[in-house]
């Protein structure tokens, strides 16, 4: 099966029902997307499929064949961070940062749809992402900062 991840084609030999998260991490070596629950309840594994935030832990790999997958590793281009990453860097709000890639990709998707979201809109869009370290207020701040840039 051929996967298009961050603009690069990857040929993988794997059962069609294996979760995308496993394929990204174990087969392609992109470990920026994390496992947190395996049931779509925490957002740590969030990637973009054709721009839409998707929980890769419950997405069978064959369902994304021919679609564009973006992971955290694909946001930085030629050493230049994505504006949302820049905002998170400036805000310096993470603790263990295990939730970071899921948060950032969810934020990228949100801002694409709604470039200047209200605080309520941010909370609503991000509510599926858990930060167990409790850095939520800083994440909201980072998204607000990114929306200004």
């Amino acid at each position: 099966m051929v996967l298009l991840v961050n603009g690069v084609k990857h040929e993988v030999t794997v059962d069609p029902d294996v979760e995308l998260l496993t394929v990204l991490r174990d087969y392609i070596g992109l470990t920026g997307s994390k496992y947190g629950c395996g049931e779509g309840a925490c957002g740590a594994c969030t990637v973009l499929i054709n721009g839409k935030p998707t929980r890769s832990c419950i997405t069978p790999v064959n369902s994304v064949a021919g679609k564009e997958v973006t992971t955290i590793e694909g946001l930085e281009i030629n050493g230049k961070l994505h504006a949302v990453q820049e905002a998170f860097l400036t805000t310096d709000g993470f603790q263990c940062s295990y939730c970071a890639s899921g948060m950032i990709l969810s934020a990228v998707a949100l801002l694409k749809n709604n470039p200047s979201p209200s605080e309520d809109a941010i909370v609503k869009a991000m509510d599926g992402n858990i930060c167990r370290c409790g850095t939520y207020p800083y994440i909201v701040k980072a998204i607000q900062l990114a929306s200004k840039s």
Binding site: T31, E73, E76, A100, S101
Partner: peptide, 14 residues
Amino acid sequence: ERTFITGKHVYVSD
């Protein structure tokens, strides 16, 4: 911090 927000930090599970 940059390694964390770019997904490059290698946790044990990675």
